[in-house]
């Protein structure tokens, strides 16, 4: 079994397969993933948000993140928590995402 830190990093990489459909970039670069926590038994907890509270895509993004996290090698169980504290803002995007959207 991977060490918790390595496992969390692997899950973060898996989450890049899930896109925010409106922005068109993966949820990690968009800054929707606030935290990935893994314990020693392979249980992973992802804390994430959406760009807009109440967005109809919320359920799908959460479910997609859960699927992607659970698929990662070494993950025994994956749980996704949604939070709006702090609320998402474009400043949370990665440098890559900012450059693509033209406000780097």
């Amino acid at each position: 079994m991977n060490a918790p830190k390595q496992l969390a990093e692997a899950v973060r990489e898996s989450l890049r397969s899930v896109i925010d459909p409106e922005i068109g970039l993966n949820i990690v670069d968009v800054g929707l993933v606030y935290d990935v926590d893994a314990d020693g038994s392979g249980v992973v907890t992802v804390t994430m948000t959406t760009t807009t509270q109440g967005c109809p895509a919320t359920g799908y993004l959460r479910q997609g993140a859960e699927e992607a996290a659970a698929r990662t090698a070494g993950v025994a169980a994956a749980k996704v928590n949604l939070t709006y504290d702090p609320p998402w803002g474009p400043e949370l995007m990665s440098e890559t995402a900012r450059e693509i959207l033209g406000f780097g």
Partner: peptide, 23 residues
């Protein structure tokens, strides 16, 4: 476009490659 994307691709997020709404 947005609603059609949700209907067709929302449940595929994380399972297979999906287009953007803009696609």
């Amino acid at each position: 476009a947005f609603l059609t994307w949700l209907e067709c691709y929302g449940h595929w997020l994380g399972k297979r490659r999906t287009p953007r709404v803009q696609d």
